[in-house]
Amino acid sequence: MQRRLSTWLLLAPAGLWFAVMLVLPLCFVLVFSFGQREAAGGYVPAFTFEQYANLPARWTAFRNTLTLAPLGTILSLLIAYPLAYFLAMRADPKWRTMLLILVIVPFWTSILIRSYAWIFILGGQGLPALVDWLGFGSIRLINTPFAVLTGIVYGYLPLMVLPVYVSLERLDKRLLEASADLGAPPLQSFLQITLPLSLPGVATGCMLVFILLMGEFLIPAMLGGGKVFFIGNALVDLFLQSRNWAFGAAVAVTLVAIMLVTVTLYMSLMRRLGGAREDVSLM
């Protein structure tokens, strides 16, 4: 009995925090999404599906997000997989931890400053100036989908490398030896053993990157220059500029709903792959 009491006392502060700062706010968003807009901006309580019916007004933001987020995810995977493979299979074990830390650390530093670095590099006086000087004519890089994709891959690469690395590292290396002993060429061993066994890591990485990309604001705001904008940019506009809280709440609920569907699909896919869930520590 005493033990139960102490357990509840230990859980109380965090529990209260999650209730007031997470559960309550998310309920508010749901309630607001059925409300109406006040003429001067703000919110009037109501129960209407008007805001949801109005969603097509922000169709461009949804379309951009739903094309560039998967594209960015695939690009990140293509760049991350060989690196994860190198770290897990080829790198000197002495240096492996340090190399891994060097991949993770940028992810935790300010994405704002790191995207800013790309404004600097892709901006008029950066790479394009260099290309022009070399005599290849003038090109424009900043404020294009290319710039946004570069920022995305740059920002989320660590998140993709890590889960793939974990699944490759756990792979039983004896399987590869057996395959080689039986005369399989390296490529065949890779395609029939390494690749299928690393799929759970690939799926985890893709899901993490895709979900975080869905809510991205900074990268398109900084590198897309108002031309390539995501749902996140529409949300900032709705809440902080046009102050249309009810409609903004409906957009936010839709965003979370899309994410939930993705996660559910992913979970059922993983179950079908027969895969054990990969517990990946990003810390």
Binding site: L26, G215, L235, F239, G248, A252
Partner: peptide, 8 residues
Amino acid sequence: PGIVIGIA
């Protein structure tokens, strides 16, 4: 996403 937490 942080943006939804922020709005909420």
